[in-house]
């Protein structure tokens, strides 16, 4: 997902000499091209100094550069949060923040590299758009969307290689929805709303119920802020919703859905928010951590069983 995103940005950068990438000492094959072809003009590194990266980006972007910044997700969000608030929220400087490895993407790296509160803290910044793609197809589209936007944006890119979701639900079928920040897979009285890697878990749960002739929908919300009118309308077509996230419940996806329902007087019921109640780290791989937190497929099925039985 990371390489797909940066490959797209690289192609745009070839056409637009004002596109500048700044990273905080990040390695990736897709970034090698930037260093080789654009060093000293469109590519810079601040070293391991995320605060300075966001400050420098503020200077460049206000002078007219289209700036993308890149670091490991916890460090591009929490470490430099106040500078982002001032640059993007207060002064509306259109900087793009690209974070790799949200949730438990860096599973065995441990708690310093886990990130389970970024949606909460980043959505508190005014003017900042927030994206979370679930596969390469969406990541590629979001790269262009962020480039074209006049607003600042934060995108959280999963580190895990996730399969494209187009095969079972053609991308063309979802084209208008994708432009409005989401995809819809299937239908039913109930839908699971999810984002990023957890959309894949939601689809596994959907398949489990489908095999039992119980149709449920899955909404893949990749534009977490702003929530589009189309998504609100689509969400309202369901009777009940369950949200699913690899993120703290405080201020995360479930909160976004609950607030959207209340603030817009929508009639749909959010019956359950599934996510992290608190944070305790563990090792043994991402699946193991998800089981521990009860956000794995089996735990989600247990929760939904309670709702539909």
């Amino acid at each position: 997902m990371r390489d797909t995103f940066w490959d797209r940005i690289y192609d745009i950068a070839k056409e637009d000499r004002d596109l500048v990438l700044i990273d905080a000492d990040m390695g990736a094959p897709s970034l090698d091209k930037f260093r080789e072809d654009f060093n000293g003009r469109q590519y810079f590194s601040t070293g391991i100094a995320e605060q300075n990266m966001i400050a420098v980006a503020g200077g460049l972007a206000k002078e007219g550069k289209k700036v993308f910044t890149y670091a490991i997700a916890p460090f591009i969000t929490s470490r430099c949060h106040e500078f982002t608030k001032l640059n993007c929220g207060l002064m509306k400087i259109p900087i793009n923040l690209v974070g790799v490895g949200p949730g438990f993407s860096y599973d065995d790296s441990g708690p310093t590299h886990h990130l389970t509160e970024d949606i909460s803290i980043m959505r508190a910044i005014p003017n900042l758009e927030i994206y979370c793609p679930s596969d390469n197809l969406i990541a590629k589209r979001l790269a262009k969307k962020m480039y074209c936007s006049e607003n600042p944006a934060y995108i959280r890119l999963d580190r895990e290689i996730l399969p494209n979701l187009s095969d079972q639900n053609g991308i063309s079928k979802n084209r208008e929805k994708i432009q409005a920040g989401f995809r819809e897979f299937g239908k039913g009285d109930l839908a699971i709303v999810s984002t990023g890697n957890m959309v894949h878990t939601a689809l596994e749960v959907q398949k489990y119920y489908s095999d039992k002739n119980i149709p449920i929908g899955v909404l893949d919300l990749h534009q977490l802020k702003p929530i589009s009118e189309e998504f609100k309308k689509n969400m309202s077509g369901y009777k009940n919703l369950v949200s699913l996230e690899e993120h703290l419940l405080d201020g995360g996806l479930g909160s976004i859905i609950a607030e959207t329902i209340i603030d817009n007087n929508l009639l749909v019921n959010l019956k359950k928010r599934i996510g992290l109640v608190d944070y305790v780290y563990a090792y043994g791989g991402r699946k193991n951590i998800q089981e521990l937190y009860k956000i794995d497929e089996k735990s989600v099925i247990n929760e939904i069983d309670k709702l539909i039985n």
Binding site: N52, A55, G59
Partner: peptide, 9 residues
Amino acid sequence: GLGAGVTLR
């Protein structure tokens, strides 16, 4: 840092 960015431009 802002100044460094302005200068770099």
